[in-house]
Design a binder for these strands. Structure first.
Length: 212
DNA sequence: GGAATCCACGGTGG
DNA sequence: TCCACCGTGGATTC
């Protein structure tokens, strides 16, 4: 089997601590949901990312948004940072991961991943409500979102838009999850609040378009 | 009985 | 003009 293993960012002397993306071909587990949606899971795709995670927490210029919700203004329950196609990502590994994903999904996606949206979930009170990432309201085009998860494990829940049982993927340190097919149109996803004690987690969402 | 799920609320922006 | 979007908290269900 030919794998698209990427070269380490470090030389052999630093190999133990260098973050590294593993192969994709042959290691992705595809879950076929109904209505033409699918999810690829690749636990442990990135290894050796402890220091990278700490650096992202510290150095990314996180943005705390506030939103008017009915009769009050609330904090968006997570920190954000959006990298447009032309912006340099805060670590070479994140660009390496994006490019590896673009190559692997080139045939299905038809275009490369270009943007990276990052979310920082500080603890179990941070969350994102049910939503789908549709491109334009009237569009029937399907898109793809690749999520790289770093830090503490959080559950990504998915449920059919028209109702039905939800399913969950526990995303841990270095795990990759890709949503494709009709997933953004016919399903929605969320990271729900939890009363469990959970530490910080960063998710990096790669998309082919400037959708936040 | 604790946790998961449901639901109503309305200003905003595409 | 129109309508999907989204976070909270209380109610309801599991």
């Amino acid at each position: 089997m030919i794998v698209d293993f990427q070269t380490s960012l470090f030389d052999e002397a630093g190999a133990e601590t260098a973050p590294v993306v593993g192969p994709l071909a042959g290691s992705l587990l595809r879950h076929h949901l109904d209505r033409g949606a699918w999810v690829d899971a690749r636990p442990g795709w990135v290894r050796g990312a402890d220091e990278l995670f700490a650096r992202l927490v510290r150095d990314v210029p996180w943005y705390a948004e506030r939103r008017q919700m009915y009769d009050r203004v609330v904090d968006v329950p997570r920190l954000l940072r959006f990298y447009a196609a032309h912006e340099e990502l805060p670590d070479p590994l994140l660009a390496q991961a994006r490019d590896a994903l673009s190559r692997h999904y080139a045939a299905e996606l038809g275009e490369p991943f270009t943007t990276a949206g990052m979310c920082y979930y500080r603890d179990g009170r941070d969350s994102v409500a049910w939503h789908g990432d549709t491109i334009g309201r009237s569009s029937t085009d399907d898109t793809m979102v690749a999520i790289l998860s770093l830090g503490d494990t959080r559950r990504l829940s998915l449920r059919p838009r028209l109702g039905g049982r939800s399913i969950g993927f526990d995303l841990g340190h270095g795990d990759l999850l890709v949503m494709g097919g009709s997933c953004q149109r016919t399903w929605e996803h969320a990271v729900l609040k939890t009363s469990r004690a959970v530490g910080p987690r960063i998710s990096i969402q790669y998309r082919p378009h400037d959708v936040r």
